[in-house]
């Protein structure tokens, strides 16, 4: 859906993005990770068209900026406007008629638990309410791509959970979500794909499952194994490691876990313990960014 090709962005001699290429598949929840100043917000602003690349191309598959929902990083809201009034204005800017905008905003406010806060001034809202309002404004006009810059920044656990649920709902509705975050746990819970940026360069990217898989390990502790078991187990799962009382499945081999267990149980082997470990996103992140 979004293809970023060899993008370079300089600000007054400072290199913000360095020949970065990235593809965001349709329907993905794509998380951008990276330390402060890595270029995450710059990339999101480039995709939104707020800034222009020094060189390179961004293909948005014909999607106009007005068809992209955007939640800015900071709380950029006019403080003296009421929530409802502000959203209705933005809805009308998104091409909705007055009545339609009122209906859409009423529905979104209910969806985001703000139905009783329509006339509350934005300047008196908590961080959580502003973030809900921001997400509601991003969804005005039913965008097919939603860009969220640090959506859970500064939110309490309840607020973070709420935003996660909304992102999952967007994913289930077939929307493409591109988000930046420092909160690895959040990314792990909602993202299907991840890219790690460091100093303006893309250092890791891909489906989250594939990133974590090579580090995944399943260890099965057993009683004594009959000698005939080892060849059968190796035939079932070539990369299995067998020691006297322990079996280890690493990386892609973990998908054999069920079959191996069934074979062991069918052979009457005493299965005493099964533990599953995988690399954390934090490990991958720290490795990619050099700590």
């Amino acid at each position: 859906m979004i293809r970023v090709q060899d993008i370079v962005k300089r600000y007054d001699g400072t290199l913000a993005l360095d020949r970065l290429s990235l593809e965001v598949p349709q329907g993905a929840v794509y998380g951008l990770l990276g330390p402060n100043g890595a270029g995450k917000s710059t990339l999101l602003h480039l995709i939104m068209g707020f800034i222009l690349p020094t060189s390179g191309e961004i293909d948005r598959a014909g999607l106009a900026t007005a068809r992209i929902g955007f939640l800015p990083e900071d709380t950029f809201y006019p403080p003296r406007f009421a929530i409802g009034e502000y959203l209705i204005t933005l809805g009308r800017l998104a091409g909705l008629g007055r009545k339609e905008a009122e209906q859409v905003v009423a529905r979104l406010l209910a969806q985001f638990g703000l139905e009783g806060e329509t006339s509350r001034k934005l300047g008196t809202c908590s961080r959580g309410m502003l973030q809900r309002t921001g997400l509601a404004q991003a969804l005005l006009g039913d965008p097919s791509l939603v860009i969220l810059d640090e959506p859970t920044l500064g939110l309490d656990p309840g607020g973070q959970r709420f935003i996660r649920e909304q992102i999952r709902a967007l994913h289930h509705a077939g929307k493409t979500v591109l988000l930046s975050s420092h909160q690895l746990e959040q990314v792990l819970r909602v993202c299907t794909h991840v890219a790690v940026l460091n100093r303006g360069r893309l250092v890791r990217s891909g489906p989250l499952d594939e990133m974590l898989a090579p580090r995944r390990q399943v260890t099965i502790s057993t009683g004594a194994l009959p000698p005939s078991m080892a060849p059968a187990l190796t035939a079932l799962c070539p990369s299995i490691t067998i020691t006297e009382r322990q079996l280890a499945l690493t990386g892609d081999a973990v998908v054999c876990k069920g079959k191996v267990l069934r074979m062991l149980l069918d052979a009457g082997v005493d299965v005493q313990h099964l533990s599953e470990q995988h690399a954390t996103l934090e490990e991958i992140y720290l490795e990619a960014t050099g700590g």
Partner: peptide
């Protein structure tokens, strides 16, 4: 000329 205009400019063709 400030951040509140991001949401506005983002909606304009």
């Amino acid at each position: 000329n400030r951040g509140t205009s991001y949401a506005i400019v983002g909606r304009l063709p």
